[in-house]
Write a protein that binds this DNA or RNA. Sequence first.
DNA 1: GGAAAATACTTGAATGTTTAAGTAAACGCT
DNA 2: AGCGTTTACTTAAACATTCAAGTATTTTCC
Lengths: 165, 165
Amino acid sequence: MERAEEPRWLSSEERDVWLTLVAVMMKLPTALDAQLRQDAGLSHFEYMVLAGLSEAPARTRRMSDLAGFAESGLPRLSQVVSRLEKRGWVHRSTDPSDGRITLATLTDEGWEKITQTAPGHVAAVRSLVFDPLTKAQSRQLGSIGKRIMGAIDPGDRCLGQNAPL
Amino acid sequence: MERAEEPRWLSSEERDVWLTLVAVMMKLPTALDAQLRQDAGLSHFEYMVLAGLSEAPARTRRMSDLAGFAESGLPRLSQVVSRLEKRGWVHRSTDPSDGRITLATLTDEGWEKITQTAPGHVAAVRSLVFDPLTKAQSRQLGSIGKRIMGAIDPGDRCLGQNAPL
DNA sequence: GGAAAATACTTGAATGTTTAAGTAAACGCT
DNA sequence: AGCGTTTACTTAAACATTCAAGTATTTTCC
């Protein structure tokens, strides 16, 4: 049953940290979703899409760029944008200079939606994440997150530029 | 368009921390799933269920207890345990002293499976989470995670034993 | 200039998850 | 003892996500 190579097992302290991190990964997205769905009828992912458009030049962005921003694949984004388009918050058009490219644009209604939704969501993020932490811990969390992202995906956006909420 | 109450907006530093955290929450579970699925044919959730049973007395635990451990609801657990039962790794039985309670037990095959799978998974957790961090950062991550969990779900198991910093 | 390859996105089928209703056993109150 | 409530879990249906194939446009290379 034992393998030839002895793995470096987790210490009991590491195991405790690990289980805590797993719990946060499971529950924080759920809690955020619940707030947005209840107060605005949006999923967290839909919110990220609208937020990504709201801060782009001319409130417009190509699909694959937006997918990278939202840390998702193209098929998922495509379906979500279809839903948002039906609700009148996003408009799709073909790039005149390259017919393969689809541009997503935030409509005025979409702008109004996101500006109405953002304050409540920011308040939720604050109460769940930043309020329980000291300023020093917030900074540490940033460093820690970036190091972990460096191990998962060294080419990720959150290590170079800045963007949204 | 502006609300009467001015929300405490996120500072640019907080925004950066927040986006980093969102990225970790999106990608770390995916990365873990990929390792387990490729090396062992298990999802991360299935692994957690087997792990939860493996460390219980008599390798047996009641369903709702197991659901709490795995941070999931009962319906999800029920279906996953059905799958694990079909694969021969778990056995279900009714508690003789209370007919409402279902007990899940890890079979010998299940024990073998988890002991074969654990070293590779621990190595992945190490390389993605603990290796990029200093010892001090690991400890900080534990404190930070416990504080956030305290805000999300004050009654969670991972806060039960010791008082969080 | 035209076939082949590459790019950007969409659509459809398979899978898994969440929500809601359903079943069964135990408890509490008369 | 008996009826109603609560608890614990399962099943069924609606929903979302991932994966694979499909369509349309542009670029590349004879």
